[in-house]
Each structure stands twice: as C-alpha cells, then as structure tokens.
C-alpha cells in the first residue's frame, strides 16, 4: 500500500494545533478532488473560524466569506458557473450559529453544492466559547459550569434539522476519531461531491472533529471525547439520501 500527500493538498505546515481534526478533513477533501479529477474546476469557500486560512492549504480556487455567509456565496458561484464544482468548508459556529439562516435556506432551495461541516462542539478560533453544538454539561468559556438545558438549551443537531427539508438530497454524519471512521468520512465526502457533479442537489457531510486545545484535553482524550461523548449525542449515519444510492 502506498500513502503519499495528494496533489491538491499544498505541501506546507498548517497553523492547526496538535491533534486538530481540521488537518485530517483537509486531506480527505483534497484526495477526493484529485480522485474525481475536478481540482481545476473547483471553487471553494473558506469560513471564519480556525479554517479561515483554508486557502493556504488547498490548490483550488477559494473565496473567503464573511462569517456564516458561505452557503449564500456558494449559491451565487454555482448559479453563475454551473459547470464548476463548488463547496463550502465550515465550522459549527460558522454554519450553525451566525450562518444558520444561510444554511437552512440554501439547503431548502436544494442548491447543487457540497457542504463540509466540521462539528467540533466549540468556537475554536476565538478561544473556546459555546457553539450551538456544545454538549449539555460541556464546559466552555461562556458556560463555565457546563452548558445547561434550561439556560442555554440543548445542542442543535444539524443533520436531523435539515433532514426535514424537502430540498435536501444527502446528509451524512461521520467522525475522524479513528482510522476506520476517517476512511468512512472520505467515502461520505466523495459521495457529497459526486451528487453535485451528477446534478442531484444539496449535500452536506457533518464531520465530528477534535479540538483538543479549547476542550482543554490531550489529543488522545479529544479522540475519545468524539468517540464516546459526541457520538452519543450526534449519532453517526446517513440522515437523508434522496437517490437511495
């Protein structure tokens, strides 16, 4: 077996913390673009969040968006350039807090785009504030005693929420806590892109991912937190698959 850095992933050191899931997910997206042979016609959006420098790591065209606005920007790009492959790469603060309106409406319109949603249950870049996806009882700088059901409300489950919308084609939740799940994540991302290439409509892949720094745990404990705590609140699986493939 061979394992080499794929062409679309720029050969450089990332700014991510040790054990951060973003690096794994970047690699998977880059490998899928190369395997599908679409790098030259791919246009991505970069979020506000730790992945704000996404454009420094990928060899495709990337537009930096205002916080949360990626699905609206991607809508415009895809409608103007339908032959191009268009995807957003967003954190949970970006996609499910400030950008929730854009997310829901782009999904509901069935825009033919691919959304890569990195759920690390926290605002990483700004130092660990509560995200819509923070677990009940999970500590953050804005929920020092742990997120409370009465005070902050329970975590928002984005796949479940979007599965109610008729416009949506494909929703799958995966994780990058171990190699087996990483391989499954790549399959889901590939399917998300294939759906778009074949004109099937809105696809979102939600990836449960580690943020050891703002969870204030070691990388190994962070992988365990995804495996035990996050998966029990955010079950993995396919939430919608309109073509049943």
């Amino acid at each position: 077996m061979n394992f080499c850095r794929t062409e679309s992933l720029i050969d450089t050191v990332t700014h991510y913390c040790p054990g951060c899931g973003h690096g794994i997910i970047h690699r998977l997206v880059a490998e899928v673009l190369d395997e599908l042979g679409v790098r030259e016609k791919t246009i991505a959006t970069a979020p506000v969040g730790c992945a704000v420098l996404f454009y420094n790591y990928m060899k495709c065209d990337i537009i930096e968006c205002a916080h949360g606005r990626s699905p609206a920007v991607a809508t415009a790009i895809k409608r103007l350039l339908p032959e191009n492959v268009v995807f957003t790469y967003q954190g949970d603060g970006d996609l499910a807090a400030i950008g929730m309106a854009e997310t829901i409406h782009a999904a509901n319109r069935g825009e033919n785009i691919t959304v890569i949603f990195v759920n690390n249950a926290i605002y990483g870049m700004t130092g660990g504030q509560m995200a819509p996806t923070t677990l009940l009882g999970q500590m953050s700088t804005t929920t020092e005693a742990g997120r409370g059901n009465n005070q902050e409300g329970p975590p928002i489950k984005v796949c479940e929420l979007l599965s109610m919308l008729d416009g949506v084609t494909y929703l799958e939740r995966v994780a990058v806590n171990d190699a087996k799940n990483v391989i499954k994540t790549k399959k889901a991302i590939r399917k998300g892109f294939l759906n778009q290439i074949e004109g099937r409509g809105f696809s979102m892949v939600e990836v449960l991912s580690m943020c050891p720094t703002d969870w204030k745990v070691s990388p190994l404990k962070a992988a365990e937190f995804v495996n035990i705590d996050m998966k029990s609140v955010f079950p993995l699986g396919v939430y919608k698959d309109e073509d049943g493939q």
Binding site: M1, N2, F3, C4, R5, L9, V13, T14, Y16, P18, G19, C20, G21, H22, G23, I24, R27, D178, A179, V182, I183
Partner: peptide, 10 residues
C-alpha cells in the same frame, strides 16, 4: 489516515 499533519507516508 490519522495523522492531521500528513507527516507519515508509505
């Protein structure tokens, strides 16, 4: 597959 920094290759 696990390395976030693509530091291992075969």
């Amino acid at each position: 597959q696990m390395c976030p920094d693509v530091a291992i290759s075969i």
